[in-house]
């Protein structure tokens, strides 16, 4: 039982380190509609954007290449895009916080393509102050 707890703690610590960037920005409310249900918007602070480019190490690229022969989900790349999207959102939230907003509404995502094997994401939305 103790061992189980220790392992769990490790997982929690690992998680915190991995997503350190999210610290302090989880207070920003994110929606992709033009309002925050049940809240009134008092101030529109304009567009905020977050972008990032990330890649996976060569090993994952090889595995994905092999997987490509057989088909199926490329978990390595799913993970890559998830991380990239999370980081873009985190950066956008950081911008929103920096200008004194407490929510970002009408969020949109867009991807670009510069390099093969890398994910380039941006997230953008309108920063607002809720009542």
């Amino acid at each position: 039982m103790d061992e189980y707890l220790i392992i769990r703690n490790y997982i929690v610590i690992f998680h915190e380190v991995k997503y350190k960037i999210h610290e302090g920005v989880d207070t920003v409310i994110l929606t992709n509609i033009e309002a925050v249900p049940g809240k009134k918007i008092v101030q529109h602070l304009g567009m905020v954007q977050g972008n990032t480019v990330r890649s996976k190490h060569a090993g994952k690229d090889i595995l994905a290449g092999i997987k490509n022969i057989f088909g199926g989900e490329l978990t390595g790349y799913t993970e890559l895009l998830t991380e990239a999207r999370e980081e873009a959102v985190a950066r956008m939230s950081q911008q929103a916080e920096a200008i004194g907003a407490n929510a970002v509404i009408n969020i949109r995502f867009s991807t670009s393509s510069v390099a093969a094997g890398a994910a380039e994401l941006f997230a953008y939305g309108t920063a607002v102050v809720l009542e």
Binding site: T52, R54, H57, A118, E120
Partner: peptide
Amino acid sequence: NLFGGRVSAY
């Protein structure tokens, strides 16, 4: 791309 991570150059 060999190591993975944030591609700061881009």
